[in-house]
Design a protein around this nucleic acid. Sequence first.
DNA 1: CCATGTGAAAGCGTTCACAGCG
DNA 2: CGCTGTGAACGCTTTCACATGG
Lengths: 227, 227
Amino acid sequence: MSAAPSAARPLPEATLRRLPLYLRALVEASGERLLMLSSEELAARAGVNAAQVRKDLSQLGSYGTRGVGYDTELLRQQINRQLGLNREHNVAVVGAGNLGQALGHYRGFSERGFNVVAAFDTDPAKFGGRLGSAVIYPLSDLARVVREKNITMALITTPAQVAQDIADRLVAAGVNSVLNFAPAVLNVAPHVSVRKVDLAVELQILGYYEHLRNDHTPAPTRAAAGS
Amino acid sequence: MSAAPSAARPLPEATLRRLPLYLRALVEASGERLLMLSSEELAARAGVNAAQVRKDLSQLGSYGTRGVGYDTELLRQQINRQLGLNREHNVAVVGAGNLGQALGHYRGFSERGFNVVAAFDTDPAKFGGRLGSAVIYPLSDLARVVREKNITMALITTPAQVAQDIADRLVAAGVNSVLNFAPAVLNVAPHVSVRKVDLAVELQILGYYEHLRNDHTPAPTRAAAGS
DNA sequence: CCATGTGAAAGCGTTCACAGCG
DNA sequence: CGCTGTGAACGCTTTCACATGG
């Protein structure tokens, strides 16, 4: 089709989920001074199928050269642009418990432009403390701080019982992207994006397959996620 | 009873991924003294579609009563059994950095029978320290401790460069379920299950949608940058 | 009756296979 | 020629709609 850069935008979720994989592979290849990469090589580095790589990349536009491959640098830029990774995002962590603290310190976020600029908790002992470079505020300051620091995304790492209330308050304060680590179903207005991460789910799935192996030993060739 | 309860086992991944959701909803309902739940009610609590609930549950067998619903307690037991959650799993955390520490302390694991019984790191300052109830060992003790403590599952929370090596050593020591938090593609023998969790991916997806919203704003101002 | 359980239909995502182009 | 880009086939997941049975 035409080469309009920002034309038919809505990328399929499945593709979206793999773009970061390609990005990592491309950065790695860049570090090895590889200027061009074939879909085959890229696939190997990302741990997926070559046809899949081509399908995914074709969704962004035609950035490959037939008979040659993809320009490492160009492709990296295009994916970055599509994912909006040029932009910096100000992120809040609500719930400064174990998980909240770990996520607040997690390098993987800041490396990709997600800056944790504030944390919130209800424990007065934590107020004024720090979570990485972010100050821990009382929950009651949420609305004010969200606005002052231009926070657009939030991680919820509170107990499940309060997660919905937190979400409501975040949305009221103007946050429209929420990543929920609490084991609770959140209902929000349609203009807000919510995603859920349940760390225990993956372990449970692994447990299931182990269970299978022990009972049956049918040796299921796992086609695990990503790998 | 008569027929072997564990008959046509291999549950679809998509179903497997939702069973924990139902489990949570059922426990919650149990706490409210609800003896029976319809697929409709269960669906609402789990945040999914009612038809989906019925399809999923029918995979486990016929544990519902037509015209009535599902027996909360019975269903809970059946899901637990299917997921192998009666059994306890001994889990190792490799990499006692921020993420490793948070995961080691995470309640959600131990609550569901996943006990972190050992941690490993290369930093001598951490040796002998604790991560929750688990002792932190030098990486060189990995094989010995894995065998002594009957560890069957491991979380990899190391830097990406060493993740493959760690995986190899874990597998050699007898671990056959690995949950990888490092941003690296792991290659393992076919009898080993590997799953990957990339915490930044979810944030990136949220970022993408925010990016979309900002670009698309139906504002009359024609500021959209072409090429 | 009423809610489950399930064929059938619709929708997505992945893989295949090859046309098309550098 | 070699590799991309893509229509078409395939397989998995979700949704629909209703027959079935307590």
